[in-house]
């Protein structure tokens, strides 16, 4: 089976679709036109660069380079999480990057060793795309989790202060917020897992089938990757909120509002 290449004309038609969000944004005054176009442009440039770069990485297939590239991915993901959760990066980025790197490398090695049983655990063809899928999902959940934690602690600050007044340690007083953020952050992933295959065909499965793999192989990969995504996402969200608990409060246990971008 051959995957059909997309012609230049076909790519044009794919961009043509952007007219719809631009028109909707214009008529409803959503102020999304420039960010839509900017994001689309960024996507094109990034994918072009990554396309060139990955061809090079895959040809070389050097373990050190693969590991470093995943670290770059983790760094960018951590940065994006903080930016989208409206947090300043300086205090939180190093710790979040370290935490996310540890969970993601561990999961990748586990996946390649025990699930796929690869001889070369750092094989670029597996190491990098799987890292991308796991990270991409963790990223979304982490934005929700960290954003929710910061919002709740501000909106319901009195509940936190009440617990402190009742003799709670910082962590004891924050557990309810932690619980809530994790639950909220994991909801989309749980819903995804429950409806997969029926409501939507995930990208990886579609990709594998398009590339000619049998649907059964594609399904096995999909199941394994969903489970890996779920576990990594949960651990990453937990660690993300821990970074906030550890770095986001002053020595009196008060939330540092100066961490927020809006301050």
């Amino acid at each position: 089976m051959v995957t059909y290449d997309i012609s230049l004309e076909g790519m044009f038609f794919s961009f043509f679709l952007l007219i719809i969000p631009v028109l909707i944004s214009y008529y409803l005054d959503l102020k999304l036109i420039s960010s839509t176009l900017e994001s689309a442009l960024r996507m094109v440039l990034q994918l072009l660069l990554v396309g060139v770069f990955l061809t090079f990485v895959f040809d070389l297939n050097n373990p050190v380079l693969n590991i470093v590239w995943v670290l770059v991915m983790v760094f960018v993901a951590s940065h994006t999480v903080l930016k989208n959760a409206e947090l300043k990066t300086q205090n939180l980025l190093p710790l979040l990057t370290i935490f996310m790197a540890v969970t993601n490398y561990t999961m990748l090695l586990y996946f390649n060793k025990f699930i796929i049983d690869l001889t070369d655990l750092f094989d670029a063809r597996y190491f990098i795309p799987i890292a991308g899928m796991v990270l991409g999902n963790s990223l979304k959940a982490n934005v929700i989790g960290m954003d929710n934690f910061c919002n709740e602690i501000q909106r319901n600050e009195n509940r936190y202060l009440f617990r402190l007044s009742m003799g709670a340690e910082k962590i004891e007083a924050l557990v309810p917020y932690l619980r809530k953020s994790i639950r909220v952050a994991l909801k989309p992933t749980i819903a995804n897992m429950a409806t997969i295959g029926i409501v939507f065909l995930p990208g990886m499965m579609t990709g594998q089938i398009l590339a000619g793999a049998s649907p059964l192989v594609a399904i096995k990969y999909q199941i394994a990757i969903m489970l890996a995504i779920y576990v990594t996402t949960m651990v990453n969200v937990l660690l993300g909120v821990f970074v906030l608990i550890y770095r986001g409060f002053d020595e009196y246990g008060m939330f540092k509002k100066e961490m927020l971008r809006s301050s």
Partner: peptide, 9 residues
């Protein structure tokens, strides 16, 4: 119960 579950209490 929560208040009495704090270490201090």
């Amino acid at each position: 119960d929560e208040v009495f579950s704090f270490k201090a209490n």
